[in-house]
Structures are given as structure tokens and as C-alpha cells.
């Protein structure tokens, strides 16, 4: 028998914060996944909103692509405000 699909669960812990990945569970359909997420990950009132996503639907970057994806950003230090030292006395910048 095929296993119930795996779902990833994301919880918004309070208004104003982003949803954060908390773990996974198995469910045959989205309604069950939502109810199971509530039972499993909010037993102590940890959330105000839940996302469930079928794991198979997530596209993730590969660790092998780390250099291609992220190293180019390393030689663009001018994107960070600390790249531009400001003379003493200049305020509100």
C-alpha cells in the first residue's frame, strides 16, 4: 500500500511574524494535513496560522549549487551599508 504523502508544516507563531518551518507529517489529503498540523504542532498554542505543503511540491536548491548560487553575492560588498563609511558629524544616514 502506498504511504500517505508527506507534508511540510509552516506556522506563524504570532501576528507580524513570517511562517516558519516546524516539521512534517503524513496525511492522505490537505484537510487531514491541516488538522494533523494543528494537533501536532500547536498543542501549546504555538500558532495563529498554519501552512501545509506537500513535500513533493517543494523545489529546493542543491547544496552542490551553493557556489553558483551564493558566492557571486560575496564580491558585491557595496550592497551592504557598512561599505560606505560616513564622516563623523553626518547624521540620519
Amino acid at each position: 500500500m502506498p504511504e500517505w504523502p508527506l507534508w511540510e508544516v509552516f506556522i506563524r507563531s504570532q501576528h507580524g511574524l513570517a511562517h516558519k518551518h516546524v516539521g512534517s507529517l503524513h496525511a492522505s489529503d490537505a484537510a487531514m494535513a491541516m488538522q494533523a498540523a494543528r494537533n501536532l504542532y500547536t498543542r501549546r498554542a504555538e500558532g495563529v496560522s498554519i501552512w501545509v505543503v506537500e513535500t513533493g511540491r517543494i523545489h529546493a536548491s542543491s547544496p552542490d549549487d551553493k557556489e553558483i548560487l551564493f558566492e557571486p553575492a560575496n564580491d558585491k560588498p557595496y550592497r551592504h551599508p557598512t561599505f560606505f563609511p560616513m564622516p563623523d558629524g553626518v547624521k540620519n544616514l
Binding site: E3, L6, G23, S24, L25, H26, L40, R43
Partner: peptide, 26 residues
């Protein structure tokens, strides 16, 4: 009842962690 339910939840957190290594829960 709440405590035993937590144990089940802990089992599920851990199976989840093992599944990230390619193991199937079933």
C-alpha cells in the same frame, strides 16, 4: 491523556527527522 499524546507527537517529530535522511516512516 495530554502526556501520552505528547509521546506520540515526539515519535512523529523524530520519524520526521529520520525521513529527511531518506527513510520511509511506513
Amino acid at each position: 491523556l495530554a502526556k501520552v499524546q505528547d509521546e506520540g507527537g515526539h515519535g512523529m517529530y523524530l520519524y520526521s527527522a529520520a525521513e529527511t535522511l531518506g527513510a520511509s516512516r511506513d
